[in-house]
Amino acid sequence: MKTNQIILIFVSVVILAAVVYTLTSAEDPETYIEKIEAERDRQFKFVRYNIDSPLTDEQKRDFKELNFYPINPEYKVRARLLPIEEKKVRELPMTDGTKERYIEYAFAEFELGGKTNRLLLLQAMNEADKRNFFLAFADDTSGGETYGGGRYINARQDGKNSISIDFNLAYNPYCAYNPDYACPLPPKENLLEIPVEAGEKNYKE
């Protein structure tokens, strides 16, 4: 076999291996769990100690932990981005009756709970990084195991036409801890008809 043929075969094998790795590689489960646990620890420390925490000083004295579902990698989904061609300003109602303005950016479509789901991705009016989105949603656990006013996810576009949504990182708005705060309620498009048993549960005093 000629040398150039051997080189060609070797290059082909390397390219094939790279393609297979790209298609099959995934984050190591232990690394993923450690990452989520670290984020939950950071969240706890913020709520417990930070001056900007929604807890009152009295609440902080008795605060021991946040309440979460067990970490489940199946709740990290890959969603298709469906851009909204004519972007409009959406006024979300707040828990105190006021409204807050966001830009309707795109829909994120994904499979979860045995069905196709779609969520509206919003963007803050003053958001400098156009890859960052605000995602407020409610689901069949809302008002039971989770806060009735819905939960939030900070989503960031990580693909040209796709985005990762990790419900293990779903967190409560400030008003779940303290009714003196006003928080945006999820838009009607984001009322999921499935239970999302991931992320933060109800705050328990």
Rank of each mutant, 00 (worst) to 15 (best):
Y102Q: 00
A26C: 14
I7K: 15
A138E: 09
A79D: 00
G143T: 06
K201V: 07
A106I: 02
E104L: 05
I9F: 11
E34K: 12
E100Q: 14
K115N: 12
L23T: 12
E39K: 11
T24E: 05
E65S: 14
V89N: 12
Y181F: 11
I7E: 09
P173A: 04
L169A: 13
A176P: 03
V77L: 03
A128E: 12
K35F: 07
A18L: 10
L8H: 09
L120Y: 02
L121M: 04
I165P: 04
L82K: 14
V11A: 11
S162N: 09
L92S: 05
Y32M: 06
L169Y: 05
N72V: 08
Y32T: 03
E65H: 09
Q123E: 10
R42Q: 10
A79G: 02
E65I: 07
M125A: 14
G97L: 02
F46I: 05
F107W: 15
N126S: 12
E127M: 07
L23S: 09
K130H: 12
E193N: 11
P54R: 00
E189V: 06
N161F: 13
A155H: 01
L82R: 15
T24S: 12
I84F: 07
D28Q: 12
Y152N: 08
E109S: 10
F137P: 01
F68T: 02
T22P: 07
E27I: 13
T146G: 05
N72W: 06
L81M: 07
A38P: 05
E65K: 15
K99R: 15
I163Q: 00
F110P: 10
V20S: 06
Y203S: 02
L119V: 15
L16S: 12
P184K: 02
G97H: 02
S12W: 06
A38L: 10
L191E: 08
Y181M: 00
L23H: 11
E100G: 06
E109C: 04
K88H: 08
T24D: 01
L191S: 10
M1N: 07
Q43P: 01
E58L: 10
A106G: 04
S162R: 09
I51Q: 15
A136P: 04
T31P: 03
R78V: 11
T141N: 04
E27D: 08
T24A: 08
K188I: 11
T22Y: 10
D62Q: 13
L192C: 04
T24H: 04
I153G: 03
I153Y: 03
L112D: 01
V14T: 09
Y21P: 02
Y105V: 14
E111M: 10
Q157K: 15
V14G: 01
N4F: 14
P29I: 02
D57M: 08
F110K: 07
G114W: 12
N168A: 08
L120C: 05
E100Y: 08
A170F: 04
A138N: 09
